[in-house]
Design a protein around this nucleic acid. Structure first.
Lengths: 128, 128
DNA sequence: CAGAATCCGTGGGGATACTG
DNA sequence: CAGTATCCCCACGGATTCTG
């Protein structure tokens, strides 16, 4: 439930980060998957999402909060402590999101192959 | 199989056009759904996708073709006749796409409600 | 008919620095 | 710790015009 998020969870070269089906903005789906197993703090999210600057991460989280998918809870302590967690609406998204990830897992290679052979064909066209 | 595509298929105010889960670029998912029931000509696609300029529609179609999701067939006639159809890889996308659309159908109102009440709260914050 | 070419505005993010 | 505040860039996409 509360294992730390792996830093390479969304490694740039890993298919899990190359989600061809996207929800909301660029990072929304990744954030939701980070919250799948319970609430997370801002700095916890920054670990797997190290490519996202704090500003953009905040924007995405605010957008998710606005849409009722994520709940933001501020614990007034020193130092400040803020937690993000999925609402029930947000959790309901996990299902179609999983379907999208399953598709990517299953077909990503085909897509990359098609892309590569297409690019080669185009190059030949230009050469010929 | 070959009924003409309705012009209001993606009406701006219709939830079907407000897909919160997106595949590829802005229009890719809509294009794929247009091709669901068989091949379509460029000008056929322009009917429901009237908000998309030809340039952008071409870009999206080329991108889908590059990824092996759509096949482009040129019939050398006068006037030119070009057809687009889903490949088997493209058709495999219909399933997760349908899951996403089902989610939107089911939860879109909740999302809009959350958004509205959130916006009202923010306004009150600014007023106070 | 099915695009290609050109020009252009906007805003989504990105980098960096700063703060309650 | 959890963000703001600025500045900035360029790629996405729109409008318009032209063509094999």
């Amino acid at each position: 439930m509360r294992e730390p998020l792996p830093a390479d969870m969304f490694d740039e070269l890993c298919p899990s980060s190359l989600n061809p089906i996207r929800f909301g903005d660029k990072w929304a789906a990744l954030i939701i998957r980070c919250l799948e197993h319970g609430p997370r703090r801002f700095s916890e999210l920054r670990v797997p999402l190290s490519r996202v600057t704090p500003k953009v991460l905040t924007q995405s989280l605010r957008s998710l909060e606005r849409d009722g998918l994520v709940r933001r809870t501020v614990h007034i302590t020193a130092p400040p402590h803020v937690e993000y967690e999925l609402t029930s609406l947000g959790r309901s998204l996990l299902e179609p999101l999983a379907a999208a990830c399953a598709w990517a897992d299953e077909h990503w290679d085909e897509l990359l192959d098609a892309r590569e052979s297409h690019d080669n064909t185009v190059r030949l066209d230009h050469a010929g």
